[in-house]
């Protein structure tokens, strides 16, 4: 056990915790911040993505002590009131299905746009390696491109008035 000081979404926290505990479980179990999701535990799926000093990381595979002294941002802190452009588009474009992977998707997408405000479709494909089992990829891709300023980016479905 060790006392670890964390700065999460701009707020200071202090934890008595085994320093090897994955950051994910420190957030979820010790701090009750459950927006960051457990999916695989081996940095495969990206459901646990957070920003550490502004860079996307898979928190299931980072020990909590690694986050000490760094600025940590979780989905709860992506925006003040849920109005990040990506969050707005995610709702407007009906992106999530079950929604479980989407916090990680949003954190990965926000990281991408921070590094590259106008990514091409191929750049989105290369950057977004998180898993969604519901198959919302086409909508995620369209929403990111829309946020990057492409007003034409939509999921294509058409025809029939019945």
């Amino acid at each position: 056990m060790k006392t670890i000081s964390l700065t999460i979404n701009g707020k200071a926290h202090s934890l008595e915790i085994d320093p090897a505990t994955p950051l994910l479980w420190a957030l979820r179990d010790h701090l009750g911040m459950t927006g960051t999701k457990f999916g695989c535990g081996i940095a495969q799926c990206g459901a646990c993505t957070v920003h550490l000093d502004g860079v996307a990381m898979r928190s299931c595979s980072v020990p909590v002590e690694y986050a000490e002294g760094k600025q940590l941002t979780t989905i709860e802190g992506l925006s003040e009131s849920g109005d990040h452009r990506l969050q707005q588009l995610w709702v407007e474009m009906n992106v999530p299905q079950c929604g479980y992977c989407q916090a990680g998707m949003l954190m990965a997408a926000a990281d991408l746009l921070q590094r590259n405000p106008t990514p091409s479709g191929e750049e989105v494909d290369a950057a977004m390696t998180n898993i969604c089992r519901c198959g919302t990829y086409p909508r995620i891709r369209a929403a990111i491109l829309r946020a990057a300023g492409d007003p034409q980016a939509v999921v294509r479905y058409a025809g029939g008035e019945a």
């Binding site: 989105v124 290369a126 086409p138 058409a158 008035e161 019945a162």
Partner: peptide, 26 residues
């Protein structure tokens, strides 16, 4: 056990998906 052994498609694997409503009979 996990996704590295049981692969799941990711965004880069997506085809162009076109949904057509034109066959709806009403």
């Amino acid at each position: 056990g996990n996704y590295h052994e049981y692969p799941v498609l990711r965004m880069a694997d997506m085809p162009q998906i076109n949904i057509h409503f034109d066959a709806l009979s009403g």
